[in-house]
Computed example of a mutant assay.
Amino acid sequence: MNPVLKNIIAVIVGVIVGSIVNMFIVMISGSIIPPPEGGDITTMDGLKETMHLFEPKHFIFPFLAHAIGTFSGAFIAAKIAASRKMTMAIIIGVFFLIGGSVNVYMLDGPIWFNALDILVAYIPMAYFGGKFAMKNP
């Protein structure tokens, strides 16, 4: 297979896998740490209206979803890529960083969470996913 095409496929599959992992973690989070009483978190508007009710524990699973989703997508992209494996992993991190930045802008969460999420959950996790993929053939 053409290496450029294989790298494009690697990024697409990485984004899909990372998104599935992210959504799975988000979906199970409410059964492990119930959302705050009196809030609707099923829509973006409801989540925005409820954000002031969130305690630090409510941010554990969103962070894990972002970090593990990015890590797994980057890992898969680096595993599939024909060349420039770390570059493909970092592309996944940038993709999810853009999505995370949009969420930060739209949701207006606490600054400590926004900073932690933006600084740790995306590019560093993509780097570690790429490193882990290249270390384990």
Rank of each mutant, 00 (worst) to 15 (best):
F71P: 00
I20G: 06
F113T: 15
V11Y: 03
F24H: 10
F63V: 04
Y122V: 07
Y122W: 10
G129M: 05
V21C: 06
Y122K: 08
A65H: 14
I90N: 02
P34R: 07
A133S: 03
S72P: 01
D40S: 11
I8G: 08
G93Q: 06
I25W: 13
T87S: 05
V21H: 02
A74V: 00
G99W: 02
S101D: 04
N114Q: 13
M44D: 08
L5W: 06
K135E: 07
I16N: 04
I33V: 15
I76R: 01
G14A: 12
G14H: 09
G69F: 01
F63W: 06
G46C: 11
L107R: 03
I20P: 05
I25K: 11
F95R: 00
G129H: 01
I8R: 05
V104L: 11
S31C: 09
A126F: 02
I16M: 08
V11H: 02
A133R: 00
F71D: 02
K85I: 05
P62Q: 10
P62D: 12
V21I: 15
V21K: 00
I20Y: 07
P62H: 06
G38D: 05
M51G: 01
T42L: 13
H52S: 14
I16A: 03
I80C: 13
N22M: 14
N7V: 01
D117P: 07
F61S: 11
G14V: 05
K48R: 14
I32K: 13
S101Q: 07
L119C: 11
W112P: 04
V94H: 09
L53Y: 06
G73Y: 03
D45T: 14
F132E: 00
K48M: 08
N22G: 07
H66L: 11
L5M: 15
T43D: 15
S19E: 11
N7T: 03
M125Q: 09
E49I: 03
P34G: 08
P124E: 08
F24N: 09
T70I: 02
L64F: 12
